[in-house]
Design a protein around this nucleic acid. Sequence first.
DNA 1: TCCATTGTTCAACTACTCATGAAACGTTGA
DNA 2: TCAACGTTTCATGAGTAGTTGAACAATGGA
Lengths: 122, 122
Amino acid sequence: MERSPALAALSALAHETRLDIVRFLVPHRAEGAPAGEIARAVKVSASGLSFHLKLLEQAGLVAARREGRQVIYHLDRHRMGTLFHYLLHDCCGGDPEIRDCCFARRAHEGHRTSALVLPPRE
Amino acid sequence: MERSPALAALSALAHETRLDIVRFLVPHRAEGAPAGEIARAVKVSASGLSFHLKLLEQAGLVAARREGRQVIYHLDRHRMGTLFHYLLHDCCGGDPEIRDCCFARRAHEGHRTSALVLPPRE
DNA sequence: TCCATTGTTCAACTACTCATGAAACGTTGA
DNA sequence: TCAACGTTTCATGAGTAGTTGAACAATGGA
């Protein structure tokens, strides 16, 4: 994944509502879900949802298709994985500590030292 | 990682300069690098760098210590891994396709179908 | 004590993001 | 053809992010 698309994807994810949309779409896999259902699930107005979906779509993280009068959105899981891959390997150089911590069953597992562990902020 | 800290961390990463800072700090590991050296490396003004470092620090992704007249910054690699863990497991439910793609040696490896692969945007 | 070095903070400005509500659009079934 | 439904687009305004340059603070050496 090149640089600018990655930034667009990161920006797209850096919003509570859009993260909710992703969370909602993951289990729907390729069949996706219609906009109205997403709007009810994440509790946002129709126009607000459309705004956020467009951002996610421009970032390549979701794709849309029309079915009758509904528009069905699904997550591009490969694109999502590619973004994570970019973060882990291109930005963090595949650093073992980051990688271990990322792949651990639970967070806070898999780190070999606690020297860098900060108290949770905020 | 709880929700708001994760959003702060994502927002912090969603900027070209700050991603450059992270990229520069990864190989410096715990010993870190002084602000001036970072500023030269990522080609940003001193005040600009200070602004971005503060954001990264508030997000818990970097930490600072003073050494003489220099201020040394280092990446919190555990925190970074925790963020990735949150994205992969809490937001994406540990979805196997996303996970495979993320851990592949190179991007675009490890996906079982190309049905969802979008052409690169922009 | 004075001065150069290193970083941070502040103020001012620009540009962008986001929420909201009304209007417009495309699709479907009567 | 028309009304209903689902969704998008548009205009507006508030709030925030980011850049720049000047002023300020902390440190250490002469």
